[in-house]
Amino acid sequence: METIKSVADLHKIRTSILEAKQKQIVENDNKKLVEIKVAMATCGIASGAKAVMDFFREELPKRNIVANVKQTGCMGYCYAEPTLEITIQDEKPVVFGYVDLKKADEIIEKFIKKGELVDGIIPIKYELAN
């Protein structure tokens, strides 16, 4: 267990987090890494986000895609839950709304495998403070 005993330790941990990510890219044979964030706040879970997240976690390895599938909090689009954000390495993140299992399958086959956009994109319209 790492413990942080000084400000320098905090920066060291941050560096090691970034290095671990870099390492994953290299180990992935320099194929593009896929990161999927599923909005898993109470409301997202209530509308089925957990099943969608499990689907990605099960299906992606079967289809030979190396991806980090992780849960996150509310993205704000209550009207379009379940929502998720996909970032293909070196590209801009894309957000999808109303993602059910069928849509999830389409996203894997078309967007993740071929880079093709599919219906249900939510254009990102905000700035972040960090």
Partner: peptide
């Protein structure tokens, strides 16, 4: 434009993973 300060990490990090926040 929406501008996210209080929500800057909401929907971007895994809330159960301190490393994401760090």
């Amino acid at each position: 434009k929406q501008y996210r300060i209080a929500l800057r990490n909401c929907g971007f990090i895994d809330p159960e993973e301190i490393k994401d926040y760090i």
